[in-house]
Every structure is written in C-alpha cells, then in structure tokens.
C-alpha cells in the first residue's frame, strides 16, 4: 500500500513535548515559527532569543542556536547578535510583560534603529509565568492577582497597544497583529510570519508580528472557552491587521 505524507511535525522544533498549558496558544505559535524557519531554509543559520516569561524555555524548543535574554532585553540582545552576524536570521520571542512593560525601551529603540530582526510578540494581557499579575496590556475591568477588583483606568491606565505604538516609530518596517484561534486565522498568521522573515532576509529592517493570545490558567476559565473569551474581549481592543508595511512604500518609490 502506498502511503502519502499529509502531515508531519515541523523540523523547526526540537522533538520533545512543549511545556505550555492546555488552551495556551504558545504551542501553535511555536509550530508556525518553526515551520516558517524550516520552509524558508533558515533553520541552519538562525539565532533565536528567548525572553523571560512563560516562553523562557523556548530555547529548548526552537531547533536552532538560541540565547536566553534578561527580562525585557531580548531586542538589545538580538541587536548585539545581529550586528555581529548580519548574514544570519535573528528573532526574538517575547510576551507582553517582557516587551510592553520592562522591555519598552529596548523594543522601541530596536525598531527606532531599524534593526534588521524579527520580533514575535505574544500578547495574552497578563503575566503568566509569575502568577497572573496585571500587564500593561491587561483589559479594563480584567481581574488579575494585582488588580483583584479589575483593572481601572485611574492609576493603572488603559491597555497599551504595541503594534499601533510601534507604527509611529519611523524605523519600523513591518508590523502586523494576528490571532491563531481558528484554521483560517492560523493560515493568515503563518503568512504574516513568512512576510516578517522575508523582510529580514531582504534586509528591509525591523518586523514584528503580534499574536493575540490566551491564558486560561490565569484568566481562570476553561481552555476551550479561552479562545472565545479572547475573540470576544481582546480582539475588539486589539484589532487584527497590518499596522505598518514600509516595504510597500519602498516598492512604490
């Protein structure tokens, strides 16, 4: 009997179980990044930077050379790597506490300098690793362990929108916000990642793909409900789409 391969695990990830919780989208996002690296032939030259947060262990999962960065500093670490190894593909993988809070200066300035790197930003509106504390991206009225009665605008502000913010930085080249809550959106997210890594390969500069994501454990809901909660509550505040595409401007010129 002839067999036909219709699916196989990506070689972009190490062959081991991921550590993430049921209902968390890190797994899907890891797979997509791994697939894109593999399909574009970048695995054997890529250097990834893991951050601090639930994805701190991503250096164990991506099947390429990896460096683990201090909290928020991944874009600075990636800058150091990329400047020394400009012919290699360099990416960071960061959460919202890491990128939008403690690492705000590093992400803005990496974009500002137009560092030729790709940032994978996973935004689930909460600190997962440390126990569900409020993040800059936490929604208004969302309860967390440091906003027990729900986030209030007064004193803690309104959720930061990083793709929109970075779109105002002249140095950024490609910014897109995606989601992986259904196959259609997963396909779209993969296209976005392909575009981002192409931008880097063509030396067109800084790219970031923001994934709106989930955290059933710290949100305190069932895994199967978390995607629905994300679609109903997060996507309206964090609309999907392309926030900047300077490659188009370049093409038009």
């Amino acid at each position: 009997m002839k067999t036909k391969t219709i699916y196989k695990p990506t070689g972009g990830l190490v062959d081991r179980d991921l550590s993430y919780c049921p209902g968390c989208t890190h797994g899907i996002i890891h797979k997509l990044v791994g697939e894109v690296l593999e399909e574009k032939g970048l695995l054997d030259e890529a250097i990834g930077v893991a951050s601090v947060g639930c994805s701190v262990m991503s250096y164990e999962f991506f099947n390429c050379d990896m460096q683990q960065a201090a909290h928020g500093r991944a874009p600075a670490v990636a800058t150091g790597i990329k400047r020394v190894r400009p012919e290699h593909t360099v990416f960071t993988y960061q959460g919202d506490g890491d990128l939008a809070s403690i690492g705000m200066a590093e992400i803005v300035h990496a974009a500002h300098r137009g560092e030729n790197m790709t940032v994978i930003f996973v935004n689930n509106a909460i600190y997962g690793m440390t126990g569900g504390q409020m993040a800059p991206t936490t929604l208004i009225n969302q309860k967390t362990s440091t906003s027990p009665t729900g986030r209030k605008k007064e004193g803690t502000g309104e959720p930061l929108r990083m793709s929109e913010l970075l779109a105002t930085v002249p140095g950024a080249t490609y910014l897109e916000r995606v989601s992986v809550h259904d196959p259609k959106h997963i396909r779209k997210a993969k296209k976005a990642l392909e575009k981002a890594f192409d931008v880097q390969t063509k030396k067109q500069g800084f790219s970031m793909i923001e994934f709106v994501s989930t955290c059933p454990v710290n949100w305190g809901i069932q895994p199967q409900d978390s995607l629905e909660w994300m679609v109903d509550n997060m996507i309206p505040y964090f609309p999907l789409g392309i926030y900047k595409d300077a490659t188009k401007e370049e093409n038009n010129e």
Binding site: A78, I81, R83, H109
Partner: peptide, 12 residues
C-alpha cells in the same frame, strides 16, 4: 541596553 547588546554579541 548596551550591556545586553554586549551579552548578545559575546554569545554569538
């Protein structure tokens, strides 16, 4: 940021 760039460059 500077010392973290050092960390990245030294790591590679």
């Amino acid at each position: 940021a500077a010392i973290n760039m050092v960390y990245g460059a030294a790591g590679s």
